[in-house]
Amino acid sequence: MIELLKKNSFFLISIGAVPSAIIRWQIDNILIVNIIGCFLLGFINSLPIAKRYKLIFGFGFCGSLTTFSGWSLKLVQLINQGFYKLFFFNSILIVIFGLFSVAIGHFLAKKIIN
């Protein structure tokens, strides 16, 4: 039974990840996709919906949309080019915007529910 649930979870996450990966491929701005993904994750995770929908939209869609590896590559490129101030600015900016976006999504979902 547990194996079936794991396979089902994998399938549900994949359903959300595929369209999100295509969207991510079309948007060439790491900051924008991470802000959108963080907002949606905060929103979806705060809704009283079934776990399967949270797997599809939260883990699958938002997880595939946001890009830690792309952000990390961008930071390494900034260091290699000698843009140290821009490196620190980007490092702090994306974390602050991400946290702020999750919080806004969370509070908006709570307002809609109540």
Rank of each mutant, 00 (worst) to 15 (best):
P48L: 00
F11R: 07
T66Q: 05
G63L: 06
F43P: 01
S69G: 15
T67I: 15
G63K: 04
D28I: 11
S20N: 10
I49G: 01
K51D: 01
I56P: 03
N34C: 12
K54W: 00
I44M: 05
I13G: 09
G58L: 01
N34I: 12
G63N: 06
F61T: 03
K7E: 09
I44A: 04
S46D: 01
F11G: 02
P19D: 12
I27S: 08
N29I: 14
S64E: 07
G42T: 05
V18L: 12
C38L: 10
Y53E: 01
I56R: 01
L40A: 01
F57H: 02
N29V: 14
K54T: 02
I15E: 03
I30N: 11
F39K: 05
S20P: 11
A21M: 15
G42N: 05
F68Y: 15
N8S: 13
S46C: 00
P48W: 00
G63I: 02
A17N: 08
D28S: 15
I56M: 02
I30Y: 07
A17D: 06
F39A: 10
G37T: 08
V33I: 15
I32W: 13
L55M: 06
G60H: 02
V33H: 06
A50N: 07
G37V: 09
L55W: 04
Y53N: 03
L31S: 07
K51V: 01
R24T: 13
I49R: 03
P48V: 04
G42A: 06
I30W: 10
F68W: 15
L41W: 01
G37Y: 07
F11K: 05
I13P: 11
I32R: 10
S46I: 01
I23A: 08
I35N: 07
I27K: 07
F10K: 08
I30H: 10
A50R: 08
P19C: 06
L47N: 04
N34V: 13
K6V: 15
C38D: 10
F10W: 12
A21D: 10
G37D: 07
L12M: 14
C62Q: 04
S14E: 09
F61V: 00
V18Y: 11
F10R: 09
F39H: 10
Q26Y: 14
A17E: 10
C38N: 11
C62Y: 05
F39I: 08
L65G: 04
R24S: 14
F11V: 09
K7M: 14
R52P: 00
V33F: 12
V18H: 11
N8E: 14
T67P: 13
G63V: 03
L40G: 02
F39T: 07
F10S: 14
I36M: 13
T67D: 08
N45G: 05
L31R: 07
L41S: 01
S9I: 06
V18D: 08
I22F: 15
N8L: 13
Y53M: 04
T67F: 14
L47V: 00
L55D: 03
F39R: 11
I35L: 11
K6H: 13
F68M: 15
L65R: 04
I30V: 14
A21W: 11
S9A: 11
N29S: 14
W25S: 14
I23H: 06
I36E: 05
L47P: 01
A17M: 11
I13L: 11
F11W: 12
Q26V: 13
G58D: 02
G42P: 04
L31I: 12
I56Q: 04
F43W: 00
L40S: 02
N29G: 09
